[in-house]
Computed example of a mutant assay.
Amino acid sequence: MEIPMGDAKKLTNKYRLEKWVSVIQEQINRGKRVDVWCEENNIRRDSYYF
Results as ranks from 00 to 15, higher is better:
residue 33 R to C: 08
residue 22 S to R: 10
residue 44 R to V: 06
residue 7 D to W: 15
residue 13 N to A: 10
residue 22 S to T: 08
residue 7 D to H: 15
residue 47 S to D: 12
residue 46 D to N: 12
residue 13 N to I: 04
residue 13 N to Q: 09
residue 33 R to L: 13
residue 29 N to M: 14
residue 46 D to L: 05
residue 10 K to V: 07
residue 43 I to V: 10
residue 35 D to T: 08
residue 37 W to V: 00
residue 29 N to H: 14
residue 23 V to A: 00
residue 46 D to V: 05
residue 25 Q to N: 15
residue 18 E to D: 12
residue 24 I to F: 07
residue 27 Q to M: 11
residue 5 M to C: 15
residue 19 K to R: 12
residue 23 V to L: 01
residue 22 S to Y: 08
residue 6 G to N: 09
residue 31 G to V: 04
residue 42 N to M: 09
residue 40 E to D: 05
residue 40 E to M: 02
residue 47 S to F: 02
residue 28 I to T: 13
residue 30 R to C: 07
residue 16 R to T: 14
residue 32 K to I: 05
residue 31 G to D: 08
residue 32 K to Y: 12
residue 46 D to H: 03
residue 14 K to P: 02
residue 15 Y to V: 07
residue 10 K to D: 09
residue 29 N to P: 08
residue 42 N to H: 14
residue 4 P to R: 06
residue 19 K to L: 13
residue 36 V to Y: 08
residue 30 R to I: 02
residue 21 V to P: 01
residue 25 Q to I: 03
residue 37 W to Y: 02
residue 30 R to P: 03
residue 32 K to C: 04
residue 25 Q to P: 02
residue 32 K to P: 02
residue 41 N to T: 05
residue 43 I to G: 00
residue 21 V to S: 10
residue 4 P to Q: 04
residue 46 D to F: 06
residue 44 R to K: 15
residue 4 P to E: 05
residue 18 E to W: 04
residue 30 R to Y: 05
residue 46 D to T: 09
residue 48 Y to R: 01
residue 11 L to Y: 03
residue 12 T to W: 03
residue 32 K to E: 15
residue 18 E to V: 03
residue 45 R to A: 14
residue 17 L to I: 14
residue 14 K to E: 13
residue 26 E to N: 12
residue 47 S to K: 07
residue 30 R to K: 11
residue 27 Q to N: 08
residue 13 N to G: 04
residue 44 R to N: 13
residue 11 L to M: 06
residue 14 K to R: 11
residue 10 K to M: 05
residue 20 W to E: 06
residue 41 N to P: 05
residue 19 K to F: 13
residue 19 K to H: 11
residue 34 V to L: 10
residue 21 V to L: 10
residue 41 N to L: 11
residue 27 Q to K: 06
residue 16 R to M: 14
residue 20 W to C: 03
residue 16 R to V: 14
residue 9 K to F: 12
residue 47 S to V: 03
residue 31 G to H: 07
residue 36 V to N: 09
residue 23 V to P: 00
residue 34 V to P: 02
residue 40 E to Y: 02
residue 49 Y to V: 04
residue 9 K to A: 12
residue 42 N to Y: 12
residue 9 K to H: 12
residue 35 D to P: 07
residue 41 N to Q: 11
residue 47 S to C: 07
residue 22 S to K: 08
residue 38 C to W: 00
residue 9 K to V: 14
residue 27 Q to G: 03
residue 49 Y to Q: 01
residue 28 I to S: 11
residue 15 Y to I: 03
residue 48 Y to V: 02
residue 6 G to E: 14
residue 48 Y to S: 00
residue 32 K to T: 08
residue 46 D to C: 07
residue 11 L to P: 00
residue 24 I to V: 15
residue 29 N to T: 12
residue 41 N to R: 10
residue 30 R to F: 06
residue 43 I to S: 01
residue 5 M to I: 15
residue 30 R to N: 11
residue 42 N to Q: 13
residue 47 S to H: 06
residue 18 E to C: 05
residue 43 I to A: 05
residue 12 T to V: 09
residue 40 E to S: 00
residue 14 K to T: 10
residue 17 L to F: 15
residue 12 T to L: 07
residue 22 S to P: 02
residue 23 V to H: 00
residue 30 R to M: 09
residue 33 R to I: 06
residue 40 E to G: 01
residue 42 N to I: 06
residue 48 Y to H: 03
residue 8 A to W: 06
residue 42 N to G: 07
residue 18 E to A: 13
residue 46 D to E: 13
residue 19 K to M: 14
residue 31 G to C: 10
residue 43 I to K: 01
residue 41 N to D: 09
residue 18 E to P: 01
